[in-house]
Design a protein around this nucleic acid. Structure first.
Length: 916
RNA sequence: GCCGAAGUGGCGGAAUUGGCAGACGCGCCGGAUUCAAAAUCCGGUUCCCGUUUAGGGAGUAUGGGUUCGAGUCCCAUCUUCGGUACCA
């Protein structure tokens, strides 16, 4: 419970006092622009200071407003930012809004209210709530991804990608113009026909096929209910991640990003990043690099060749059949009824079904045979949907003895199994590990007796010399599907002529703004119908009207605008750059500002682990693209990354699993009872969400305790990276601590400074202060805020018990407290007579000598159990310590009748006597 | 299935390179203050045995191991939470 001041303690630190202190200083800070940091070319900007770019993952402002889980990471980054400022850094600490997205559009569908209206009002709510917590953001840099000034440059970057290709040889993106001149000068080859012999159309097709942002015909995840395609990662168990609607696979022409070109660099550059190990692992897995071989199998009845990819070329002698994906091009040529039926079925099977019976391996025998190049054996060719067209070549050599899936398939369809790898140790079931090759020799190649690693090499060498194949590196990563059939996203700056050829909008005509439409209902249809197509007068225009460069297309030409929009990820792929110079209108980011702040990437990036793969991966990709094109100075956007833990909350279920609002539950005798019914309910720990009825609003907490208490409590719950359940009862501990801090300086009766502040320095308090400064100074850069706070509590307890603290001691203490609880610290700082702002003051230094004392107490163990303690001078040597321990009365007693065998002395730590 | 993280009092959690397990907070118990309550302050609080004290024993998911000494290192097992899913 929060306190209410009475006449005796009118000036106690209670919610009302906290509130008035907080609002006063927030407005003073704003008025003084205390958190506005300039840029290198600004007057008065001190370039001699080191820079620190501390960034939060910006939020999607939902209509429900903030809950107490949102600020966890923001408080963490705010403490670090304040600390760095006090240590003399120029700190860039901005905030903005990731504001395009489905919820606002869904709301528009239901109510007809324009998404911009709901989004803007949600942003206002979020901003107000954040400001009330007292964050030190430089709000002058705020922007939202829906601002035309911002998405203009999102479109511009996309056009950059459209106008670039990836030079494999140099592993680097370059402008399309360099590709064309290379082709013209024949330094770059475009296939069998020379460039100059190609028709204009053929040349265009070739160039288009090289663009980093390209139009591709792909099998995509189409969600009829949402009326849009989804990226693979937006599909969970064959259903849409959002809303859980069925997803079907179909072929569509969509804008893609050639992210696979960067697979190697995205993988290799992970090495230099200071990121959580688990996130690095996930990024690696996402790329899924594997080494193996491409092997060409000829067919016994035709001249066709089928290429497969395998990571185990050493098992080629065990390949007893071949499997093609139903979508494999060769399958089209097979017209037998059972194949046609199976392929048709496979196509219609939704991903939901495929997932559901993934254990059962279906397939059909084509009746055709391929020839195993290693031993000339004829092996049957099957078609099965467990082989995916999107990976490798959509065809595999099946080795049932050493691959679980092939084994399951062979068992189900009675296909021969031949063991060709002997395990080092006995094992049961299908063995897919490494071992020694057996049954693997023929006239052309033999690997019997070789270890797997050598056998692979032998086979690859043989493949190369015999022309049957070669070593190959493959990736799990696919190109990034970048089109969505949504309204509330960035429009693509591109138009099509009547023949379907695409033309970019010129930079001068950006942004391509979203048109307003009457009705946001997506056409529910099996045929994809982007919502923007409804804005007919916008869609059908002329090249001149749309802003196509007249030198590539004459202005009167009728054109059709792209009606897809970019996915929600787009705006967050480069926002860290825009913060450097958010109002720059000549460029997406000012060059000097970018190279100063982003020179070696963001110094601390804090956000949830739920973005460990996608957002971070996409942003890294955009950064590398821009880096290659000379637009930015850093190859990686985020040097250091930190994931704050999930704030969970208790929720309560009735026996029928229905949920009870947290507020309707009370605890009685260690049981949880629903107040209205008296029924017992079970407590579960879950994410805070509206549906679980366990949301806690920070506004309520602030009203009851103040923002400083909220900040302190959230940081004190446990390590920042760990999940912990919100427990309203615990907040009072943080509040009491601040009350004691207040009482160190202020008389509760009068509100005056305490008279004892002028007293002499108490040595114990002074030592405790230095120890605390040392601890907090060390903990903040580690983001170990919970232990930093614990040490400050200890200090305040010490000072309170000693009864006295000096002005100077309190002044230093409020400085180290200020990153955590900026308002109360500021108030005390001012009352102590300091001018200006505590957040602009210097971070205190501690005296190393004050951390050690002249005597130490050492525990004495006998056989590993503590039996006594001795107090000795800190500088005592091992010999003296040993003697002192043996002479201790209590130790003597314990050693009676025992023979001392050995004494271990660890100076400053412990003494262990081995005796029996 | 695979990959990753984590299991410490009634609860959230502390514990440098192996060196006094349980810092700090919540809760609980007792006391002060109060007409009373709230708030605040002071003291106690891992469990078991010891009526009190002195003291003793057990104890960091489980079972083993290394070591003078293990929450920490090694092996095996269990549980929970994330991520991923036919990637050949």
């Amino acid at each position: 419970m929060s306190c209410t001041p009475t006449t005796q303690n009118e000036h106690r630190y209670c919610a009302s006092l906290a509130g008035s202190i907080e609002l006063k200083w927030q407005s003073d800070w704003d008025a003084a622009n205390i958190n506005v940091v300039g840029n290198p070319n600004d007057v008065g900007f001190d370039l001699s200071k080191p820079k620190f770019y501390c960034l939060d993952m910006f939020p999607y402002p939902s209509g429900a407003g903030l809950h107490v889980g949102h600020p966890v990471g923001y408080i963490g980054s705010d403490i670090l930012s304040r600390f760095k400022r006090m240590q003399g850094f120029n700190v860039l600490h901005p905030m903005g809004w990731d504001a395009f997205g489905l919820p606002a559009e869904q709301y528009a569908i239901e109510t007809g209210v324009h998404p911009a209206t709901t989004t803007r009002s949600a942003i206002d709510t979020f901003r107000e709530q954040l400001k009330r917590i007292g964050f030190s953001y430089d709000w002058s840099r705020e922007f939202a991804t829906i601002d035309p000034d911002y998405y203009k440059w999102t479109q511009w970057i996309w056009l950059k990608a459209y106008d670039s290709w990836f030079d494999e040889e140099n592993q680097k993106a370059k402008p399309i113009s360099e590709l064309i001149s290379g082709l013209e000068q024949e330094t770059i080859c475009c296939g069998d026909t020379p460039w100059k012999n190609l028709s204009q159309t053929q040349q265009d097709v070739f160039v288009d096929s090289k663009r980093l942002a390209y139009l591709g015909e792909y099998i995509v995840n189409w969600c009829p209910k949402l009326g849009t395609v989804l990226a693979n990662e937006e599909v969970v168990d064959g259903r849409s991640e959002r809303g859980s609607h069925p997803v079907v696979r179909r072929s569509m022409r969509q804008w893609m990003f050639r992210i696979t070109a960067y697979a190697d660099r995205l993988l290799y550059d992970l090495k230099g990043l200071d990121w959580p190990e688990s996130t690095l692992r996930m990024q690696k897995d996402w790329i899924g690099r594997s080494e193996g071989a491409d092997i060409d199998f000829s067919l016994d009845a035709s001249d066709e060749i089928i290429r497969v990819y395998t990571t185990r070329p050493d098992t080629i002698f065990g390949a007893t059949f071949m499997v093609l994906a139903p979508e494999h091009p060769f399958v089209e040529s097979i017209k037998t009824p059972n194949v046609l039926t199976y392929v048709e079925e496979a196509r219609n099977r939704s991903d939901v079904d495929r997932m559901a019976d993934s254990k059962e391996k279906t397939g059909v025998n084509t009746g055709m045979f391929a020839i195993n190049p290693a031993n000339g054996t004829k092996i049957p060719i099957w078609i099965a949907d467990y082989v995916l067209m999107g990976y490798g070549h959509g065809a595999i050599m099946a080795v049932p003895a050493h691959d679980d899936r092939d084994h399951a398939f062979a068992t189900a369809h009675s296909i021969q199994i031949i063991e060709v790898v002997q395990p080092q140790e006995l094992c049961d079931g299908c063995f897919s590990g490494e071992g020694i090759a057996i049954n693997s020799s023929s006239e052309v190649v033999s690997i019997d007796g070789q270890q797997t690693i050598d056998a692979k090499e032998t086979i690859i060498d043989w493949l190369k010399t015999s022309g049957f194949g070669s070593g190959k590196v493959n990736y799990r990563l696919r190109d990034w599907l970048f089109s969505r059939q949504r309204y509330w996203g960035e429009p693509f700056p591109i138009v099509f002529d009547e023949a379907g050829k695409h033309y970019p909008i010129s930079e001068a005509s950006l942004p391509v703004e979203l048109p307003t439409i009457e009705d946001y209902t997506p056409p529910v249809s099996d045929e994809p119908q982007p919502l923007l197509a409804k804005a007919e007068s916008w869609v059908h225009t002329t090249a001149g009207e749309a802003g196509v460069d007249p030198s590539i297309l004459s202005p009167e030409t009728p054109v059709r605008r792209e009606v897809n929009t970019m996915p929600g990820w787009a705006g967050s792929c480069w926002y860290e750059l825009r913060y450097c110079s958010p109002s720059c209108d000549s460029r997406f980011v000012d060059r000097d500002a970018e190279s100063y702040w982003m020179g070696n990437g963001v110094d601390m990036y804090i956000g949830g682990a739920e973005h460990a793969v996608r957002h971070l991966f996409y942003t890294r990709f955009w950064q590398k693209m821009l880096f290659d094109l000379g637009e930015v100075s850093s190859n990686e956007p985020f040097k250091t990354l930190f994931h704050q833990g999930l704030l969970t909350s208790f929720a309560f279920q009735r026996s029928d699993k229905t949920l009870v609002p947290t507020t309707d539950v009370e605890e009685q005798d260690n049981k949880f009872i629903e107040k209205n019914t008296g029924e017992e309910v079970t407590q579960i720990i879950a994410k805070m969400s509206k549906s679980l009825k366990n949301v806690v609003n920070p506004d309520d907490v602030i009203a009851e305790y103040g923002a400083d208490t909220l900040r302190l409590y959230e940081m004190y719950m446990g390590p920042l990276e760990a999940s912990a359940p919100w427990n309203t009862n615990d907040i009072v501990g943080a509040h009491r601590f601040l009350q004691r801090v207040w009482r160190l300086g202020i008389e509760e009766e009068s509100g005056n400074l305490r008279s004892c502040l002028g007293a002499e320095t108490n040595e114990d308090v002074e030592r405790a202060l230095h120890k605390t400064i040392a601890k907090v100074t060390g903990d903040i850069p580690e983001l170990a805020y919970n232990t930093a706070i614990a040490s400050m509590i200890e200090f305040v307890n010490t000072a309170t018990n000693e009864g006295c603290i000096t002005t100077n001691q309190l002044d230093q203490f409020v400085r180290i407290l200020s990153p955590f609880a900026p308002h109360i610290s500021q108030e005390l700082y001012a009352r102590l007579g300091e001018e200006g702002f505590v957040c602009a003051s210097q971070w205190p230094v501690f005296d190393e000598a004050m951390l050690t004392s002249s005597t130490v107490e050492l525990p004495v163990q006998i056989m590993g159990k503590v039996r006594g303690k001795i107090t000795i001078p800190a500088e005592a040597n091992a010999e003296e310590i040993e003697q002192s321990a043996l002479q201790d009365e209590r130790i003597k007693e314990c050693l009676e009748g025992l023979t001392v065998r050995k004494i271990i002395v660890v100076p400053g730590k412990i003494i262990n006597i081995v005796a029996n």
